[in-house]
Every structure is written in structure tokens, then in C-alpha cells.
Design a protein around this nucleic acid. Sequence first.
DNA 1: ATAATAAAAGATAAATTAGTCTTTTATTAT
DNA 2: ATAATAAAAGACTAATTTATCTTTTATTAT
Lengths: 143, 143
Amino acid sequence: MFSKTCEYALRATIFIAQKTKEGERIGIKEIAKGIDSPEHFIAKILQDLSRKGIVQSAKGPNGGFYLDKASMKQSIADIVKAVDGDKVFQGCGLGLKQCSETEPCPIHHEFKRIRKQLFVMLDKSKVGAFTEALENSLTFLKR
Amino acid sequence: MFSKTCEYALRATIFIAQKTKEGERIGIKEIAKGIDSPEHFIAKILQDLSRKGIVQSAKGPNGGFYLDKASMKQSIADIVKAVDGDKVFQGCGLGLKQCSETEPCPIHHEFKRIRKQLFVMLDKSKVGAFTEALENSLTFLKR
DNA sequence: ATAATAAAAGATAAATTAGTCTTTTATTAT
DNA sequence: ATAATAAAAGACTAATTTATCTTTTATTAT
């Protein structure tokens, strides 16, 4: 559904949200461990997320990644859009560029309905909302 | 959502279904034109679809691709599975391999619901069912 | 049998995505 | 000021996906 980069981005951001709520800034190494991702790769991704304002970062001792209030309220959909673009929310299921209401592909209408539901679901899911379940080991970000 | 290969495979199969209903076998060149895909690439893809029994083919003069009765009843979901595997119907939204009912990722349950709906929709969509709308230019397979 | 046709097969190339490693810059505590 | 820390930046490699081109095999009509 999403690119690997996007999957790592989502896991990392949720992980950072959790740590932020615990009052910590968190370094790349711990993030990589915490979400079971290649360290250097997640570093690249976080660099990009930081540039885009999806996560916040501080250099130097006591530095690391964290989320400010606005970032905490972001939705999964926001992150997906920022990383993979909105192809998954907008694009034609059969890959047609011109596919639209007036020139629909054979599955356009049904597909649109599903995509809409996907978007609504991901848009409702706010990054800051997963902390409690993670703390209580009801949900996981590894393996 | 799907790979390019899969998108072309779906368009090609629906196109072949239409031609089959018109009583024609159809060659690679016409298919490529009919679905606006690179000719050599769709040739490769059809070769694979043919091996998998998703489309039927005949070599030599008057040869070409067509669908037998069973293939005509296949669903979009069947083709997606054959080409992209069932990652899109089964896989974790955050890319976790172990994600399951007992070890769910933070969005597991909601995601599952959407994926289910996607599957049901694509499973209901039978390859042979799109012909009429295509004939009447109510739907399209190009651009 | 032969020539023409059309898919199958195979080999290669280009583009994109995923992943790694090294160097630089900014920040902090001493 | 200096050393330590940690992210940012940049350069590179590997793998996968997408795409192209050539040769072979099967079939049909003459």
C-alpha cells in the first residue's frame, strides 16, 4: 500500500510521539531499534521528515527527535501524503492518468469509495493518539 | 496501490475480455494501443499471465489472446493476487511482518476493515462484466 | 515443404526505490 | 576554547521494478 520509506516514516513518527509524551528526545539509534528499521536508512528518512516539519529535531548533546504540539496532532494521512504523495488517495486503480468522473475507468466509482474510506480512516488517526496502547503493549511498532 | 505491472495486467485482461466477447482474438500490438501501454512490456506481462492461466493465447496466424469461460469469470482480485501477491489484501499498513490480531500495529484493526472492503469490492468485480460500459464509452481503458 | 504470422523466451538496459557509509555542521557541557 | 554529542548532508551501492530489443518456437495457410 505504502512505500517502505513511508512505512518506516509512520512507525518512526508514532514512536517519537510516544517518547515525546514521556518527555524524552530520542536519538536515531534508539528509533532504529524501537521500530526495527535500518539505522542509516531511518536517519535519511527522518532528515527529510524534519525538513518537512513532520518531526522536530535538535542537534548536539541532549539532542534528538521529538514532536511539537502541532506535529502531535498530525494524522497518518498527513504523513503518507508528505512521503508518498496523494497517489494512494487520488490515483486511478488501473493506473490511468486521465481517469475522472467524466472519463472513468471500469472500476472508478467503486474504487473511489474505498479510497475515500481509507483516507477518512487515516485522517482520523492522529499521531499522538497511539501512545497509551503502545505503553500497555496492546499494540506494537516492531517486527 | 498496485504495481505498474499489475495495472497494465488488469487493463489488458479487461480489454481482452471485451474483444473476446466480440468474438476476436487480439494481438499484442492492438492490446498495447488499446490500453495505452508499452508494447514490449505488455508482451512480457501477457506471457506471464498466460503461463498463469489468467489469459489464454494461441500462436501463429489468427493467433492472439483471448479469455475462456473460466477466465471471463475471474475477478480483479484474482488478477491482483496473481501479479502482486496478496500483500495489498493481507499486509500490515506499517510494514510489520508479525502484525496480527495478537500483536497488532497501532492501526491494525481499522486498516484490516478497509482492506477487507477493498477485497470484497475487487472480488465482486468480474473481468467479463465491464464489456458493455466500455462498448458504450461509459468507461475507458486508455490515458 | 515453405513462408508468414504471432506468441514465448531470453538477454539487456534504464529508472526508481531501498539501503549504507563518510564527512560536515550545530549544539552543549566542561 | 575544546571535546563530545547528535543530526544534516552528501556520495555511493544494491536491489527491485519498469521497459526494450532480439531470437526462438509453434501454428497456419499456401
